[in-house]
Computed example of a mutant assay.
Amino acid sequence: MSFYISLSGLKAAQSDLSTISNNVANVNSTAFKKSQAVFGDIFASAPMQTTTQVSGQGVRVQGVNQQFTQGTIETTDKTLDLAITGEGFFTVKRTADDQVSYTRNGAFSVDENRYVVDTTGARLQVIPLDPTTGASTAAAPLTTASLTDLQVPTNWPAGATGNQLSSVGVSEEGKITGVYADGTTVYLGATAMAAFNSQEGLRQQGDAHWTSTNASGAPMLGMGNSGLYGSVRSGALERSNVDITEELVALISAQRNFQANSKAIEAANTLSTTIVNMRT
């Protein structure tokens, strides 16, 4: 039995090492959220058995939980680099299959069709606004179907010539405005911020993207700098929330745990060999 108990310990230590290694590998990934392996003991006994005379049967991995703590905000001075201070996610949609996902990686840029896209090519989703007043024109309650792709026209009105774009601005609420050559300021949309009842229930998709599940609950959409939603900072990006010093200490601990379980297997093997080689 000791072989299998120590084997479960080896597997648990290996899972811990893999989780820590993934955290360390992504220390420079934009908006990466670190994970932590959670373990639980295995215990079983017969109904008529005295539990004080039964030892445990090993350890198991209960899950690998994501840690959605705030990462460091790094200034970039690029207008379409957006960071969230507080809770919430940006909403993006892939054009290939219309899949909606959520991210805190705000490294946005403009593609050849003037759509604002993230590093994976998914388009930033915005709440439609009145171009003049900036008031929302979407019906309540907000759903992903109410959102539109953000497009920054080179000229205003869109398709016209002469009145070219001068600059783009983003407020703390996430309202995107375009200023044109004649001084006209146009509201292009407001970044659709998403919040969830259980962030830990989100399904990872890679590239700092997540999709909603039954465990996370349906997304609650709104504008930034209000309620559950953090404020939007233009010209900045959120770095990984991995503390490299903390991870290296955890790595040493996991390595020692692995070595201890290896020694336990070695001791059990020595004991078994001694018993087998005993002569009467």
Rank of each mutant, 00 (worst) to 15 (best):
A13E: 12
S15Y: 11
S18I: 10
S18E: 14
S21K: 07
V24N: 11
V24T: 12
V24R: 09
F32G: 07
S35E: 12
S35K: 15
S35L: 05
Q36L: 12
Q36M: 10
G40W: 10
S45P: 01
A46V: 06
P47W: 08
T50Q: 15
Q53K: 15
G58W: 06
G58R: 05
V61Q: 08
G63V: 01
F68S: 03
T69K: 08
Q70R: 03
T79V: 13
T85R: 14
T85V: 12
F89V: 02
T91G: 00
T95V: 13
A96N: 11
A96M: 11
D98I: 07
Q99P: 01
V100S: 10
S101P: 01
Y102T: 00
V110M: 09
D111F: 06
Y115V: 01
V116G: 02
A122F: 12
A122I: 04
I127D: 01
P128Q: 02
L129T: 04
D130W: 10
T133C: 06
T133M: 07
G134N: 06
P141E: 03
T143M: 05
A145R: 12
T148M: 11
T148I: 13
L150F: 04
Q151E: 13
Q151C: 01
V152M: 03
T154R: 15
T154C: 00
N155W: 06
A160Y: 03
N163L: 02
S167P: 08
K175V: 08
T177F: 09
A181F: 13
G183C: 03
T185S: 15
V186T: 09
Y187G: 00
T191Q: 08
T191G: 07
A194E: 02
F196V: 04
S198F: 12
L202H: 05
G206F: 07
D207Y: 13
H209F: 11
S226E: 10
Y229N: 13
S231Q: 14
S231N: 14
R233Y: 12
A236G: 05
S240Q: 01
E247R: 06
E247M: 09
L248T: 08
F258V: 03
N261Q: 07
S262L: 13
A264P: 07
A264I: 11
A264K: 04
A264V: 15
I265L: 15
I265W: 11
E266N: 15
A267V: 14
A268C: 09
T273K: 15
T274V: 11
I275K: 13
I275Y: 13
I275C: 00
V276A: 14
N277M: 05
M278H: 10
T280P: 08
T280K: 14
